[in-house]
């Protein structure tokens, strides 16, 4: 059996299971994949031999762990490719999906990972090895950033400015900041800014003093 066919099956079974919250029957698969029923049964037997799935007593097709993992990878590839084709290259969504269906079987994991990174923060990524290790508790895709890029940080505004928090970058993604109320969407007012960059902001009726490095990790937008 071709790899691409196997992947199509696994993908279809996962999607069906997710959508209807029960696994598909051979009949369901035959409809979705436009393959006739007899052929589907043969394919399913082959996949069961490979350890990807098993048939339950009520005729439903249940994926094994191995099958689920592979299926999930394919779905992720599909989604990433589809967003890239439609959001970045401007293709319409349904042709993007068709195209993704074809590329997903050939594309490598690394390409998908990099495409994913690119989608989350459209800048050129340095080659592997130079990249900071991802930290679980920080927003993904933000690790390499130490400034807000073209967005402005708290440090760019003067005393008295009312601002909305948009994002908190790597270093600043401290739990304490979040607990004090510095979260995306929050209104903050700069109460005091010393020449050396130390800042006091008013958040929810409370004054919070910040070192410059923390303030510069808080991306904000001015309230017009």
């Amino acid at each position: 059996m071709r790899t691409s066919l196997r992947e199509d099956y696994l993908e279809a079974i996962l999607i069906h299971t997710g959508r209807y919250s029960h696994p598909p029957t051979a009949q369901d698969l035959s409809e979705v994949l436009h393959i006739d029923k007899g052929e589907v049964s043969a394919h399913l037997r082959e996949l069961a031999d490979r350890g990807d799935l098993r048939l339950s007593d009520d005729g439903r097709i249940v994926l094994t762990d191995q099958g689920t993992t592979t299926g999930k990878q394919i779905i992720k590839k599909h989604e990433t490719l589809q967003s890239f084709l439609s959001e970045i290259l401007g293709m319409d969504r349904s042709s993007a999906s068709d195209e993704a269906c074809r590329i997903e079987h050939a594309v490598s994991d690394e390409t998908i990972d990099r495409l994913g990174d690119y989608l989350r923060s459209p800048v050129i990524q340095p080659p592997a090895g130079d990249r900071a290790k991802p930290v679980h508790s920080c927003p993904r895709g933000h690790q390499g950033h130490t400034s807000c890029g073209y967005a402005r940080s708290l440090m760019d505004y003067e005393e008295g400015q009312r601002l909305i928090v948009r994002d908190i970058l790597g270093r600043g993604c401290s739990k304490r900041l979040l607990d004090l109320g510095v979260v995306p969407g929050q209104l903050v007012v700069i109460k005091r800014k010393l020449r050396n960059g130390s800042i006091v902001v008013q958040v929810k009726d409370c004054a919070v003093a910040l070192s410059p490095e923390n303030a510069s990790a808080i991306c904000v937008e001015r309230i017009p």
Partner: peptide, 28 residues
């Protein structure tokens, strides 16, 4: 952890940030 990673990719925000934001919004 693995679930959190998935959520983080979808939201482009850490789970801690999402949870804190939900709570703050509720408190507000």
């Amino acid at each position: 952890g693995s679930i959190a990673t998935e959520i983080e990719q979808r939201h482009q925000m850490s789970v801690g940030q999402i949870i804190a934001t939900n709570r703050h919004n509720f408190a507000r």
